[in-house]
Design a protein around this nucleic acid. Structure first.
Lengths: 341, 341
DNA sequence: CTGAAAGCGCTTACAG
DNA sequence: CTGAAAGCGCTTACAG
């Protein structure tokens, strides 16, 4: 085989010449337009395969005004990229856009780089974007909405805004955790929450409280965390201290993220509390720490791949019909039972 | 702000009209061609900012024959995407290509989908590709070389071929591990290797043996693993059994991947061997299991981000000058000391 | 230093 | 059902 890059790629023009038809006809068969005569189509198809033709995407983009690519935007923090969540999103998105011939472009918003993302869309390098891990202060969602560019969020926005998003039913997830603790015989439950200025933090706490009430359990211990391992450890220390003061123990603990749970576990152990014998622990996320830590965590799992696939579908639809109203889809979480609870 | 997507984007043409110059001149200032008169340049720059012009990439690509995008190709296995290694690669690549205005496109090779990757490059949707996690049977590297398309491998190819790659000095990494075990007082060392049909498996074993010889240690126990957790557990069982038969213990263990180490650790513990008191363990990769497992692993770390940045640089260079000879760059590993060894 | 013009490789009304 | 032609928005020799 000769150097494909040296010799100029085959163009429509050449295929047309070989097939003895016009460029328009070749274009029609390439794009599967139905109105082409059977025999002509076959002639063209043969010409395509003998010449090894493959369409130039830039040329097509120029006239169709479609980039044929969508962006996956993450905040520029190492943390995010190393989180397996990111890979699960990619694994969910790829299978839906691949058959459509759409590429997935990865971007991070470096400090002050929000403009770049908007520009990428305006330059028609991207038909739309999926935003994951956006936090409250992030101006990007609003920037994109104001520019009327197709965008889908990976979670309910912090402040209500007219935007398409996909989320898991956070409250229901917390409910699953409490139901499980109760089913395992827990009577006094506690929780380490996420940051309460984040929707996920709020919703998981709300779901927790609702489930506690539903089961008729006594007033639970509640300590706020921040989704970090250290935050989980600190909250756990507060919890065991409070326990001493109140003179009442807890036998079930719902931690609003696995990462916080990995911080809390050693604290409980050092305090003489065995997991799951003395206190049963349930996390949230089913992230990799959940399976690596000791004991492995019973945890609430989000169907991330399914959610990501849905985000891709919604985005593609918005690209196609920008005028359609925004929508949101909420997925049901599941419980993964391991040894901690 | 009005809907940017409804109104047609501003073109060069309009900027030219506003500035009262030709399209060629606007193009020159946009592309930073030095020969433009100072004053004219300023007029044009003002026109650009008042119109909010941003160049259409497809149009530019069409004439420059550059996609302005490179691909990151991974095998289509869930495993790969969930591996934090993947995120580290992305984190390394992005900062080098971003300032160049180059996009990073993610692709997996679904079964029989190698052709697609080649096509993406031939369609000029991708200027070149970075291949990670390619295994011996993967036909893609050869396919790309034969098509003379710019490609960089994330590791030394299984079989020698004229290809640009970046790797870590695997043997040196194993040497680091042995040096550390010896420094900690180990006298009889053992190893669980990677699959010996993979370069990484071979090189780490070679480095291990060389270091053992260098330190004048007795003949070590060697059991082959396969880089999986279960493989690590199986190998560890073999090791403790062999230990019994031979009547000789080992007090230091080098496991050629962290994941295998997480499988081996419980086996050692169940066999009454305390880590690190009875046997010190060193892993390889510094992957997330290394920090999550109990005890946290002392391990050999690859400078993945630096390596990925170098891959990006090499690829961009190859895109620019396809005629240049292939090259390879080897990075030095470091040792991360935790509690296991 | 600047502009007129050709051309990159497609798609898509518009005729026929 | 098919083709001639215009046009998508740029860059780049080529003159001047």
């Amino acid at each position: 085989m000769k150097a494909d890059v040296d010799r100029r790629p085959v163009t429509l023009e050449e295929v047309a010449r070989v097939a003895g038809v016009s460029r328009a006809t070749v274009s029609r068969v390439v794009n599967g337009v139905a109105t082409v005569d059977r025999e002509l189509r076959q002639v063209v198809e043969k010409a395509i395969s003998t010449t090894g033709y493959t369409p130039n995407r830039a040329a097509r983009s120029l006239v169709t005004r479609r980039a044929g690519a969508i962006g996956l935007v993450l905040p520029d923090e190492g943390r995010t990229l190393h989180d397996p969540y990111f890979g699960r999103v990619v694994a969910g998105v790829l299978p839906v856009i691949r058959p459509l011939g759409v590429q997935l472009v990865l971007t991070t918003t470096d400090p002050g780089g929000h403009r770049e993302v908007v520009d990428d869309v305006r330059q028609r390098r991207l038909d739309g974007v999926i935003l994951i891990h956006t936090h409250g202060a992030d101006p990007l969602p609003r920037l994109l909405i104001e520019s009327n560019l197709p965008v889908v969020l990976a979670a309910r926005p912090v402040r209500p805004m007219p935007i398409t998003y996909v989320d898991v039913d956070q409250a229901a997830g917390a409910g699953l955790a409490v139901d499980h603790l109760v089913a395992r015989g827990c009577r006094r439950v506690a929780t380490i929450t996420g940051p309460l200025d984040a929707p996920a933090g709020q919703d998981r706490l709300r779901g927790f409280r609702e489930a506690v009430a539903r089961h008729g359990l006594p007033e639970p211990l509640v300590v706020e965390g921040d989704f970090s391992r250290e935050g989980g450890a600190a909250a756990a220390r507060e919890l065991v201290a409070a326990e001493g003061r109140a003179g009442e123990g807890f036998d079930g603990l719902f931690v609003a993220s696995d990462l916080m749970a990995t911080g809390a576990l050693p604290v409980l152990r050092n305090h003489g509390l065995r997991v799951p014998e003395d206190v049963k622990v349930v996390g949230f996320d089913d992230s990799s720490p959940a399976v690596e830590c000791d004991p492995p965590l019973t945890t609430v799992r989000q169907p991330v791949e399914d959610m990501a696939a849905e985000m891709a579908r919604l985005l593609v639809e918005r690209v196609e019909r920008p005028d359609r109203p925004v929508s949101s889809v909420v997925f049901a979480p599941t419980l993964v039972v391991r040894r901690s609870g």
